[in-house]
């Protein structure tokens, strides 16, 4: 197990900059989730740490060793791929034994390690099967097993759950988390799914356009987003944004141009008395909660989250919307969060 640190890391293909000046320190035994929309450079970052992509500038240090010019096999890392990348012509056992054989371990040791790992992942009965005879979830487990038997310094997971169905994804999420705790492993996990990021991460790294927008624990990021991008990306349904040029809201910090309010903090109020007025467009009834979609006269769309017990106003009625002062997030016109006296505190 080891620490990983990235200093001023940059990646570009010709003139296209994919990752720009990224600095990040990962502690021993931490589960870091790198989250962002597709094309934000998160997978490239992981592949640079793995040694599958060259590093244009900056340094990557794994376990106190600069690895910039080392081959993947010299970096003491293990990776789980999105498509699992299991060797299709080998049995599960042979898949897991592959790296150990190359490392020159003797047969007894290999068998022992695989047995331990297989028990950990409940794979004992599948060891003689080929990958194509396994279900998606089982393949995923084998891919993890292949990484675990090697006992590497760092685990790298590249969207490992995106090929699974929703139910299995939730289950595997919990398993990964439990496993990581049990092994005390340093794990970097890339995903585009913000729910996955929220539930798994010790700390999450929110990336956009090759730049780190914010690093922090899931709740820190949720309650204290640093930019409009983070505020809109983390949290489902996303945060509502009101353009301050169209609404007369006081008090407002200087330079603020947008105010963001999470759907669960938005409240109905009599017409004309709130932050804005809007018309009820439609409902999403999810059982435990109801999402009310609203549209203002100038076309802005808002979502308001209601406990199901509350009765929402009828469709097409106009209502006022408001939120407590502490739940108003102000941003300047570059999307940067403005820290004011009345910044919402973490609950």
């Amino acid at each position: 197990m080891a620490r990983v640190s990235l200093t001023a890391v940059k990646k570009s293909y010709g003139k296209t900059v994919v990752i720009d000046d990224l600095t990040l320190a990962i502690e021993d035994g931490e589960l870091i989730v790198i989250v962002g929309p597709s094309g934000c450079g998160k997978s490239t970052l992981l592949r640079m740490i793995a040694g599958l992509e060259t590093i244009t500038a900056g340094t990557v240090v794994i376990a106190d060793r600069v690895v910039n010019n080392l081959e993947p096999r010299e970096r003491d890392i293990a990776m789980v791929f999105q498509n699992y990348a299991l060797y299709p012509h080998m049995t599960v056992f042979a898949n897991m034994a592959y790296s150990l054989k190359i490392a020159g371990l003797d047969k007894g040791e290999i068998a022992k390690r695989i047995e331990t790992t297989a028990r950990l992942l409940e794979l004992e009965s599948f060891l003689k099967r080929k990958p194509r005879q396994l279900s998606g979830g089982q393949r995923q487990r084998v891919a993890m097993g292949r990484a675990i038997v090697r006992n590497p310094a760092v685990f790298l997971f590249d969207e490992p759950l995106s090929n699974l169905d929703a139910r299995l994804r939730v289950q595997m999420r919990m398993e990964i988390k439990t496993l990581q705790r049990k092994l005390g492993a340093t794990l970097l996990y890339v995903t585009h799914d913000q729910v996955e990021a929220m539930t798994l991460a010790d700390r999450m790294v929110v990336m956009n356009n090759g730049i780190v927008e914010q690093v922090g624990t899931p709740l820190e990021v949720y309650h204290n987003p640093a930019t409009t991008f983070v505020a809109g990306f983390i949290g489902s349904p996303p945060m509502n944004f009101l353009d301050l040029n169209n609404h007369n809201i006081v008090p407002v910090p200087v330079k603020a141009s947008l105010v963001g309010i999470r759907p669960e903090h938005l409240r109905f109020c009599p017409l004309g008395t709130g932050l804005c007025d809007a018309e009820v467009a439609f409902f999403e009834e999810l059982g435990a909660e109801t999402l009310v979609h609203l549209r203002s006269q100038n076309g802005e769309k808002y979502i308001l989250r209601l406990e199901s017990a509350t009765t929402p106003p009828a469709l097409a009625t106009s209502v006022g919307l408001t939120a407590a002062d502490k739940y108003r997030f102000f941003f300047d016109n570059n999307g940067k969060r403005l820290k004011s006296e009345d910044a919402p505190p973490s609950p």
Binding site: R73, M79, F81, Y87, Y98, A103
Partner: peptide, 14 residues
């Protein structure tokens, strides 16, 4: 042959 297979083998030390 999927590139990720080759990459996985490279990481596995081959």
């Amino acid at each position: 042959i999927p590139r990720s297979l080759i990459e996985a083998a490279a990481i596995d030390g081959a």
